[in-house]
């Protein structure tokens, strides 16, 4: 069973994408925890640890990703967590590259087929289990 935390850091309330992803992952047979909006990096990381999830999916549209995502990565690292981090939202290409360099597994922009995200997460764990 893959357990996923879908989290919305920052102040933007556009949760359409986060909710769609949460539902699609459920329909793909995963257990999905949704945090709701306006989560601080501290809340997200503590939740990921307490819920012992395999994946954290971060949805962010406000443009604050370069502040918030690195902070989440840093806190995960402080907790020795090896949870896989995915990011979705309006993320310019150069930012996406930087985030991937610092440990984000994948960054998804608008228009990404949900099936692609689902397959990528599934594939990530099949691969990891080998």
């Amino acid at each position: 069973m893959i357990k996923v935390l879908v989290a919305k850091p920052g102040l933007d309330g556009h949760d359409r994408g986060a909710k769609i992803i949460a539902r699609a992952l459920r329909d793909a047979g995963m257990e999905v925890i949704y945090t709701g909006i306006r989560q601080t990096p501290e809340q997200i990381v503590q939740t990921a640890i307490d819920e012992d999830v395999d994946v954290v999916g971060i949805s962010i549209l406000s443009g604050a990703h370069m502040k918030l995502v690195p902070r989440i990565l840093e806190l995960l690292k402080n907790n020795n967590s090896d949870v896989a981090v995915f990011v979705g939202g309006i993320i310019p290409e150069e930012d996406a590259m930087e985030l991937k360099k610092s440990g984000v597994v994948e960054v998804y922009g608008p228009g990404t087929p949900i099936s692609e995200v689902v397959e990528r997460i599934k594939g990530y764990f099949e691969h990891a289990n080998v």
Partner: peptide
């Protein structure tokens, strides 16, 4: 910007990364 909309000053911890963004 979102801090202004949600009633946080720019130096509030909630505003981290959001000041002047949207």
């Amino acid at each position: 910007d979102l801090p202004t909309q949600i009633g946080y000053d720019s130096d509030d911890p909630h505003s981290l990364g959001e000041v002047g963004k949207v």
